[in-house]
């Protein structure tokens, strides 16, 4: 088998894709331009385009894609359900509400991002607290159902703010944010998100074997020696941190966390030790490709969420019709 080589190949492909993505755009660059600029000998215009515009955007796309796919793979294993996406516990709805509130209050960009992050974390926090208070029933099912409820509440609050928002100035900004975009991303935006994503990925990587065991179900995991409640809490906290950080950066980008782990599972199987890195690599490449499309196929930017849905939805239908597994 060539299993160990696959992540390496993917990483190599990713580097080539990133290089290509830096070249394309309204200000076209040759491979030579890019290489010269990267070693500090490009002409001033290319230097500005590459360092201030293209590279931050490429890096953001890689980060967001990798983070969403990794979080999706974690949530799917945890909830024992391949149809779960990273926003199952309301992180997107909460982050959306946070960002919309920030835009509504005309806060600066950094504050809007912070508000989105806090909203996403808070939504999942409320979900876990409410689910813990509801006793008796199946814990995983309770979590998912409470997630739906809190997500709907946050969605209602977001709608209210949209109605109240200034239709000429704030409403377009809100709509754009809720559809996801990397159009205005700068290095300063990426810097806070990067360490948060890394901090979230560490426990997921360390717990990779226990996450496999958890996907056999709570009771069995406990019988096998795993403190299921504590481990699940840690995985939810880590995956939520990862999702909220990139949602604050890019807005609500759907479908990546749902679809990419499927592709990764087809390639390397469900073992989480292989699934996590391969999901992250494919997710990074996928979102880089989609974002590059988003900024090049039309004279105006296409919101990311629209493209990921247009590509993701039919793809997912194909997956569903091929697989035989439904709800666990």
């Amino acid at each position: 088998m060539i299993r160990p080589a696959l992540p390496l190949l993917l990483a190599l492909a990713l580097v080539l894709m990133a290089f290509g993505a830096v070249m394309v755009g309204p200000f076209g660059l040759s491979p030579g331009d890019v290489l010269r600029t990267l070693v500090g000998q490009g002409d001033p215009q290319a230097t500005i385009v590459i360092w201030n515009i293209r590279l931050p955007r490429v890096a953001a796309a890689l980060l967001v894609g990798a983070a969403l796919a990794a979080a999706g793979a974690s949530y799917q294993a945890l909830f024992r359900n391949p149809l779960v996406s990273p926003d199952i516990l309301g992180v997107s709805a909460g982050a959306g509400l946070g960002a919309v509130a920030g835009i509504f209050l005309s806060l600066p960009v950094a504050a809007i991002q912070a508000s989105a992050f806090v909203g996403g974390m808070a939504a999942v926090g409320v979900v876990t607290l409410v689910a813990a208070a509801v006793r008796g029933a199946d814990r995983t099912l309770t979590l998912v159902l409470v997630g739906v409820v809190i997500g709907a509440l946050a969605g209602a609050a977001t709608s209210l703010l949209k109605v109240l928002a200034d239709p000429y100035d704030q409403l377009p900004a809100i709509t754009f944010w809720l559809l996801g975009s990397l159009a205005s991303v700068t290095s300063a935006d990426i810097l806070p998100a990067l360490p948060a994503v890394l901090v979230g990925l560490v426990p997921l990587a360390l717990l990779r074997w226990r996450i496999n065991v958890l996907s056999m179900g709570d009771e069995e995991a406990r019988a096998l020696g795993v403190e299921a409640g504590r481990t699940r809490f840690l995985v939810i906290a880590a995956a939520t941190l990862v999702t909220a950080s990139v949602t604050a950066l890019a807005g609500v980008v759907g479908w990546v966390g749902l679809v990419i782990p499927h592709v990764a599972r087809m390639l390397v199987g469900p073992g989480f030790g292989r699934l996590l890195p391969v999901s992250a690599l494919i997710g990074a490449g996928y979102l880089l490709a989609v974002d590059t499309l988003a900024r090049t196929i039309a004279p105006v930017e296409v919101p990311l969420g629209i493209l990921t849905a247009v590509i993701g939805a039919p793809f997912f239908v194909v997956l569903l019709s091929r697989g035989r597994r439904g709800w666990a």
Partner: peptide, 19 residues
């Protein structure tokens, strides 16, 4: 039972080593 993901039989047996 049937798990939701297609683990290999050996992986399932290995889970016995978790503790």
């Amino acid at each position: 039972h049937a798990p939701p993901f297609p683990f290999e039989a050996l992986e399932v047996v290995l889970m016995g080593r978790t503790a």
